[in-house]
Simulated scan of single mutants.
Amino acid sequence: MQMKNVFIHHVYFWLKNADSSEDLADLVAGLEKLTACTTIQQYHIGKPAATSRDVIDGSYAVSWCLFFANKVDQDAYQTDAMHLHFIDTCQHLWNKVVVYDSVDV
């Protein structure tokens, strides 16, 4: 099923302590709290799948995929107090973050 008229915000996190199950759990817990943001329509918290091909980058620890109705809602999320609190309380867990935003072609 094709999704239309959505703004997708996909974030990939690399943990500072890649082997720490506690840090991984703390990051996921922080993301789960963030799901209460009212502009988020749908979300997915994931980890690398057990796939292996030359084009796949499975080096990240956690994937955070968000669906918004539009860019305005995504922009509101960026300044939402819950999002800012998440950054303040969890940024010590990661050493790299990559974001891919996309809209309909």
Rank of each mutant, 00 (worst) to 15 (best):
Q2A: 07
Q2R: 10
K4R: 12
N5R: 06
N5W: 12
F7L: 07
H9E: 15
Y12N: 03
F13M: 01
W14K: 01
A18G: 15
A18L: 07
D19Q: 10
D19V: 03
D19C: 07
S20G: 05
S20M: 00
S20W: 06
S21G: 07
D23G: 01
D23P: 04
L24F: 15
A25F: 11
A25D: 10
D26T: 02
D26C: 05
V28N: 03
A29L: 05
L31C: 14
L31Y: 15
E32N: 13
E32W: 08
K33C: 09
L34H: 11
L34Q: 03
T35G: 05
T35I: 08
T35Y: 00
A36D: 09
A36Q: 10
C37R: 00
I40P: 01
I40C: 03
Q42A: 13
Q42P: 07
Q42R: 09
Y43F: 14
H44A: 14
H44I: 03
K47R: 12
K47P: 04
A50Y: 13
A50H: 13
T51W: 08
S52E: 14
S52V: 00
R53N: 07
D57F: 14
D57H: 13
G58M: 06
G58R: 08
Y60V: 01
W64M: 14
W64V: 11
C65D: 15
C65Q: 05
F67P: 00
F68A: 02
N70T: 13
N70A: 10
N70V: 12
K71A: 15
V72P: 02
V72Q: 09
V72G: 09
D73L: 05
D73E: 11
D73K: 02
Q74E: 11
D75Q: 13
D75Y: 02
A76Y: 03
Y77I: 01
Y77G: 01
Q78N: 13
T79I: 12
T79R: 04
D80I: 00
D80G: 05
A81N: 07
M82W: 01
M82D: 08
H83P: 04
L84Y: 02
L84N: 01
H85E: 15
F86R: 00
I87W: 00
I87E: 10
D88L: 02
Q91V: 04
Q91G: 09
L93K: 11
L93A: 08
Y100G: 09
Y100A: 15
D104V: 03
D104H: 09
D104W: 11
V105G: 15
V105W: 07
